[in-house]
């Protein structure tokens, strides 16, 4: 009994001592600011700042290599906190943007070329003849973006076969836009203004054959816009957000209902 207690206590003491000694000897000096910067970051490791994850960004920012405002999901608040911790001034923050799907071609509106029964992933599906949808620019709708979103802002609308982006939750990190094999997700300004929700640069006739809602490049919106904010580029209307006054005439006049 006595021996047992002594032995275990001795062992515990010995190991405790060794550990205590080791923690002193082997201590790695870390800049305490890295930890506090890391603490106020969103922690999603989305990589929108250009670093591997939040911790790497915190390290770079503390070293002064990264601009304090690089965290896009964190936005103004986080940049301010980081700037405060590091004692730096806050430079101009980039405009907040959110992801938008530039395609309205759901199951009813866009025709399919063939039945696809392979791996349920957009990147896999486009390997075969550019995907199963007739329009080569259309959203494939197999949810690669939804799975890639670290903020849970995209979910799949199974009925329509298109992703639904929650623009409130979206932080504008842009991972979905990078993951999308069709490049049909764009980061657009959070300012309320009409957007052409079509990505097709095909000629009007082709678009008509492929899809019921795609932009055919008819140019009606260009003519009707009182601000001359709309131009036609490669059979696709483009709205200049600087000039747009959000009057809504283009939305009303579009014969294809693809400006929303």
């Amino acid at each position: 009994m006595f021996e047992a207690t002594l032995t275990l206590a001795g062992l515990g003491l010995l190991f405790g001592g060794v550990l205590a000694l080791a923690s002193k000897k082997l201590a790695v000096k870390v800049d305490p600011r890295i930890e506090s910067v890391n603490h106020c970051l969103p922690g999603a490791n989305c990589g929108a700042c250009g670093y591997g994850g939040c911790f790497q960004f915190a390290e770079a920012a503390t070293r002064g290599e990264a601009p304090v405002s690089a965290c896009i999901p964190g936005g103004c608040e986080v940049s301010q906190e980081v700037a405060e911790i590091l004692g730096l001034g806050l430079e101009e923050q980039a405009e907040r943007r959110a992801a938008a799907l530039l395609c309205l071609g759901d199951r009813d509106k866009t025709r399919v070329k063939f039945d696809y029964d392979g791996v349920q992933d957009c990147k896999a599906a486009v390997l075969f003849d550019g995907g199963f949808k007739a329009c080569p620019f259309a959203c494939v709708g197999l949810g690669t973006c939804a799975r890639s979103c670290p903020f849970d802002a995209i979910r799949m609308d199974d009925k329509k076969g298109l992703p639904l982006i929650d623009r409130g939750k979206c932080t504008g990190c842009g991972i979905c836009a990078r993951e999308c094999p069709k490049d049909v997700i764009a980061l657009t300004s959070l300012k309320e203004s009409p957007t052409v929700l079509c990505n097709s640069t095909a000629k009007g006739k082709e678009v008509r054959a492929q899809c019921d809602i795609g932009c055919i490049g008819c140019g009606i919106c260009v003519k009707k816009c009182p601000e001359e904010a709309i131009t036609m580029e490669k059979n696709l209307a483009l709205i200049d957000k600087e000039k747009c006054t959000n009057c809504g005439i283009c939305v009303e006049k579009c014969p294809r209902d693809c400006i929303l």
Partner: peptide
């Protein structure tokens, strides 16, 4: 005793690797 040994050993190894 073994639990004690393993727990401390892992701690030590972690510190060494960190350094």
């Amino acid at each position: 005793a073994f639990i004690l040994v393993i727990a401390s050993l892992v701690q030590l190894v972690e510190m060494v690797v960190q350094k």
